[in-house]
Amino acid sequence: MSTITLVGQPVTVELKNDLAITGVLVSVDQFLNIKLDNIKVVDEERYPHMLAVKNCFIRGSVVRYVQLPAPSVDTALLQDAARRERQQPATGARK
């Protein structure tokens, strides 16, 4: 679980009410609270309310998805980690 390596990458955060905000990832904490810089609401025409906001803090509890830039995600590494976890469910995973 290292979204931390995505700091500095552009991500799109979709809230549970469908509002989507794109920005550069600044930080994430254990609650999935997210800080974004240089933000833009994806549908600005419909949601111009925040056009004077350039950076923001999003509460983790309202986040539905975080869309990551595909090239920044190492799928091979993820698959490998998932496979290894399945073989040794005792290490780390509590299920």
Binding site: K16, R46, Y47, N55, I58
Partner: peptide
Amino acid sequence: ALIGELDEELDEQADYDNMMVEPLDPVAL
């Protein structure tokens, strides 16, 4: 749901008097 830093310059430029839009949607938790 969200706390954003308000850019005062952009905020002054924004034409709120002609901004007739629905309020932001509530976020169901």
